[in-house]
Computed example of a mutant assay.
Amino acid sequence: MGTPEAGAGERRQLINVAYRLLGSLTEAEDAVQEAYARWYALPRHRREAVVSPGAWLTTVAGRICLDLLGSARARRERYVGAWLPEPMPDRAERADGRGADPADQITLDESVTMAFLVVLESMTPAERVAFVLHDVFRYPFAEIAAILGRTPAACRQLASSARRRVGDARAPVAPAAGGQADVVRHVKEAWEAKDIKALVGLLDPDAVMTADGGGLAGAVLRPVEGGERIARYMVHIADKAPGLTLLERSVNGMPGLVAQRAGVTVTVAAFDVTGGRVTRIWAVRNPEKLRPWTRDG
């Protein structure tokens, strides 16, 4: 039977689930905190009667995330420009080194690449919950049904529908980090040199660049489409923002770039690379999403 402290060991798993469901570390932490608050609000005899505190906490956290996903749709309709998931640094690159920070508990794998998280954004809340819990974390549909309030068969259909979205979007299953690192390094060098021709050669002709400033930082409000247009836009940014330092950093487990001014991170860029060329760039500039990225000194 469960004990009052039995749920504490589940925190890492819950943070990982919630971040993939919500695309926001802040919201994931809040959801997990709320799940624990409800756990400890139970009378002691009820906690002790719970056979699996982990399953109880997952069900409650999943329902909280489902509610947040529903309300997030309305919030994002009012969001200034494009909304992108919150980028995640590697543990070794954390700005403050706080071991207790929830970001340190995120397992960086293919299910947290920016490309994958962006595909998850295209799903309905119920599809996202069913797909993430089953396909990423291998929860049985019977447990997912308890979260969604639907039958296991209905949850299976939701996951199947979500899986088709992933296939249609060509989300990478096992990205080649080594090849991507070389391409990203060349992009950095061409960007620093303001070499439009070199950038065009590194970008797929049909590449798309999406920026998220959230109304708090300057960012193009609509995606920039086409390799040449993106290259010219990147050089335009470099001309307008002298003094930027570009750093090669891991972004959600894949090679990316971080732009800093006076030691403060102002942009985190994630890339999708296919056939040796950049097909997608996601540039997060909203300072509220960049707090883990600034080092002191």
Rank of each mutant, 00 (worst) to 15 (best):
A262N: 14
T124G: 13
E110A: 14
A55G: 06
G297L: 12
G256F: 08
I237F: 08
R75F: 08
G179M: 08
L133Y: 10
E110N: 15
P287M: 11
R75H: 11
A92C: 13
L203R: 00
R63V: 09
R156K: 15
G179Q: 12
P255Q: 09
T59A: 09
V187D: 05
F271N: 02
L42T: 02
A283S: 07
V80G: 08
A171L: 04
E248F: 08
V112I: 13
L244W: 11
A259K: 07
D104F: 00
Y79N: 06
R73I: 11
V112C: 12
D212R: 01
L22P: 01
S122I: 01
H134P: 11
R73M: 10
E248M: 15
L203N: 00
L22F: 00
L158H: 15
K188R: 15
G54Q: 01
R128T: 11
Q260I: 14
E192M: 14
V273L: 01
H236F: 07
Y19C: 00
D206R: 11
A74V: 13
V220C: 08
A181M: 12
V132E: 05
G215P: 01
G7W: 00
S250A: 13
R185N: 13
G243R: 05
D96N: 10
S52W: 00
V187I: 10
L290F: 07
G9H: 07
R12S: 09
E110M: 13
A61L: 07
L216H: 12
A270D: 01
L148A: 07
K188P: 10
L247M: 15
D272Q: 05
R285Q: 09
F271E: 05
D195Q: 05
A217I: 08
V220Q: 10
A28H: 04
D96H: 15
A262H: 14
I15Q: 01
I106Q: 03
E189T: 14
A259Q: 08
W282F: 06
R63N: 09
V118L: 03
P125R: 03
T267I: 13
V173E: 15
Y233T: 11
A100L: 06
T107V: 15
L202G: 01
V184W: 07
S71N: 11
L202D: 01
G226I: 04
F141W: 11
A146R: 15
T26E: 11
S161R: 15
A153H: 14
P292G: 03
K240Q: 07
S122E: 14
F116P: 03
P172C: 04
D104G: 10
G70E: 10
Q180I: 09
E34M: 12
L84T: 02
E127S: 08
V224G: 01
P223K: 04
A270C: 03
A35W: 00
A49Y: 04
L68W: 03
A262T: 15
A198N: 08
V80C: 06
R229L: 10
G178N: 13
R185D: 12
R128C: 10
P125F: 03
A130W: 09
Q157F: 15
S161P: 13
A142V: 12
A217P: 05
V235S: 00
A283K: 02
